[in-house]
Nucleic acid binder design. Structure first.
Lengths: 191, 191
DNA sequence: CAATAAAAAGGACATTTGTCCTACCCGTAA
DNA sequence: TTACGGGTAGGACAAATGTCCTTTTTATTG
């Protein structure tokens, strides 16, 4: 449920320690909007520590959470390749420490460092291969199944992530989430 | 709605004409299952001509269409990077002509040809940036809006793609699709 | 051509889910 | 302290959507 990428994180930490590139460390408190939707930026970020959410808001003001990002996950990297505006907003949930690259450095690394290139490519592929089955599952299974699934993947999700975020992640309303939780409690399948 | 990538197609055509790599051309009739879900393969494909669908089937036998693939779209490439089983099945809709690479050649090209590397990276990024807003839109808009949207993106979708596939693409049943179409006809918003 | 299968259309009903609303608890700022 | 906002919880109702089924149309193939 909360995605991570330890291989990428440790490699980037290593690069950063060398000091050859302008990779800086930044800190954010909780509930900090780091990236807004439909904007242009010039930095790529990689989470060193903490949890953030990446979400799309639609015209009706609803939020649809794409991913919860944990250690080693990048964001803002798509735009380097597509040259277009950001599609997701990213907001810290817990306190967050990130590495930040300029587009120029990120591009240069991708071009000259084969291992970095490969890890970034793999990270993109992983984002795709993770998203598809999740949406498919959500679509074709009742809410209760989805909740149980979360519980398996991340036993104490309820203690870290708000109900609202969980609902937006599953793509339902808080009301429906509560109904499902009630249902599961009654059946003794929860907690 | 039907994704394409002319830049990648023309570059691969060019590479193939050089004959330095073992890129072969293959043909498939309509309704041919080229890739099955949860299998291991050793080839990457790129569509030269025709339309295919890429879909996930869930445990209940329902299909959820991820993308309609047109000229220049790759499939089977994720597994080169992730080393895992296929997540989607791919089936031709029309007659299909594809270029096929062995994993070895694909990997070698990614490693040695900077332009190819960049185009593949961009193609991955595009797959991500395309998928997210679509699912978000589908989720938070009534079916009618989704149908109208398809109509805009691809005016005569109904003549090429079956109702079942369209419904599976939007993530609804055929019954609901018919209801929406009826609704729109009545309001004079269709055709 | 006839036979059969697959796709399309839609009625009737049940269920799920969303919308709207009210209430409660808790932490914080005035 | 009091007032307020945010998160949580759940009742009542309406609307959207799925399920199941029947009929018609269109395409395929022996």
């Amino acid at each position: 449920m909360i995605r991570t990428n330890s291989e990428l994180l440790s490699y980037v930490s290593q690069i950063q320690r060398l000091g050859k590139w302008g990779i800086v460390e930044e800190e954010f408190g909780p509930k900090n909007k780091i990236i807004e939707q439909d904007q242009r930026y010039s930095q790529v970020h990689l989470i060193k520590e903490g949890i953030a959410k990446c979400y799309i808001s639609d015209d009706n003001g609803r939020e649809f959470i794409q991913e919860f990002l944990g250690a080693g996950m990048e964001f803002g990297e798509l735009e380097v390749f597509t040259g277009r505006l950001s599609i997701c907003a990213v907001e810290s949930i817990t306190h967050l420490t990130v590495f930040s690259f300029s587009y120029a450095d990120f591009r240069a690394l991708v071009k000259t460092d084969a291992r970095f290139n490969h890890l970034v490519m793999k990270a993109l592929a992983d984002k795709i291969r993770y998203k598809a089955p999740r949406h498919s599952y959500q679509h074709s299974h009742p809410i209760e199944d989805n909740v149980l699934r979360l519980q398996e993947l991340f036993p104490d999700f309820a203690r870290v992530i708000s109900k609202k975020d969980i609902a937006n992640y599953i793509g339902i309303t808080v009301r429906s989430l509560n109904r499902a939780l009630k249902q599961l409690e009654g059946a003794g399948k929860l907690k």
